[in-house]
């Protein structure tokens, strides 16, 4: 199907050399349909697994399990749907780097907010009791 259409496009003609039946440019990387469908099937399967897993009382592990599954799904999307597996290493580098910066932002803010939380709790309780007491006078 693609091959017949390609004949209309003069610019693509010289690039078709050496690519056999595929009529795409040397820098294009078309994903095979099997691959696309396989990734999609895996994503759906993981969605089902995570929904089912949510019905079990996993306690503290619940967030770990659901985020692990989410990360596997995200990796599939990034690596195959977004072609990062085949892409220039620099694009992968900046993507991973951005995640590192998110981790930094999240990590330090989380550590800090947990540290000062007891102080906030203390003050809120004082605040609430005075507010409740206030109308009584």
């Amino acid at each position: 199907m693609a091959d017949t259409q390609q004949a209309n496009h003069p610019h693509s003609a010289h690039d078709a050399h050496g690519h056999g039946e595929h009529a795409h440019a040397s820098f294009a990387h078309p994903m095979a349909p099997r691959m696309l469908l396989g990734v999609f099937a895996a994503l759906i399967a993981l969605t089902i697994i995570t929904v089912v897993a949510a019905n079990f009382p996993l306690g503290r592990w619940e967030i770990v399990v659901s985020l692990t599954i989410a990360t596997i799904k995200a990796s599939l999307v990034v690596l195959f749907f977004m072609h990062l597996w085949y892409d220039k290493p620099f694009n992968a580098l900046i993507f991973v780097a951005s995640l590192a910066f998110v981790a930094l932002f999240l990590g330090i803010t989380l550590i800090d907010s947990r540290e000062y939380q007891p102080e906030i709790e203390q003050r809120t309780i004082e605040h609430v009791t005075t507010e409740v007491a206030a109308p009584a006078q």
Binding site: F101, L104, I108, I111, D112, E115, Y116, E119
Partner: peptide, 21 residues
């Protein structure tokens, strides 16, 4: 430059641990 933002918050309720880091 990304690792030092908390030095603007030494006196604004940030925890001591974060302040030292």
């Amino acid at each position: 430059g990304f690792l030092v933002w908390g030095h603007h918050m030494f006196t604004s309720g940030q925890s001591q641990r974060a302040a030292i880091i």
